[in-house]
Amino acid sequence: MLPQRMKKAITENPKKHANLIELVNLPSTLREFMGQSQTSRLGCFMRVWSYIKANNLQDPNNKNVVNCDDKLKSILLGKHQVELAELPSLIKLHFPKQPK
């Protein structure tokens, strides 16, 4: 049971997560925020999330909400406030599916 499961996980994962860790050339808005010209979707998320934590941008009254500063606003559709729940999908907008 276990070996098969592991095999399955190993064989499935590369495809499943390929678009998470694939390095992508960034659009100029994101490039400025990230300070680099290439990154993966996962790397971008980690960067944004640690930026939020480092700058205490979570709303003190409701931690589920982020009050964007100007820098963050520039990459999150110019919103003043975003919910943490929508953060991944907002970041995903910068990483459109590559037509094959």
């Binding site: 998470l20 860790i21 996962l42 998320f45 980690m46 729940a85 929508e86 953060l87 991944p88 999908s89």
Partner: peptide, 17 residues
């Protein structure tokens, strides 16, 4: 791994939406 942890979080939030 970051990838595994994040993909779980992401898919959960997607489902939540």
């Amino acid at each position: 791994t970051e990838v595994a942890a994040y993909s779980t979080l992401e898919s959960t939030l997607k489902w939540l939406k």
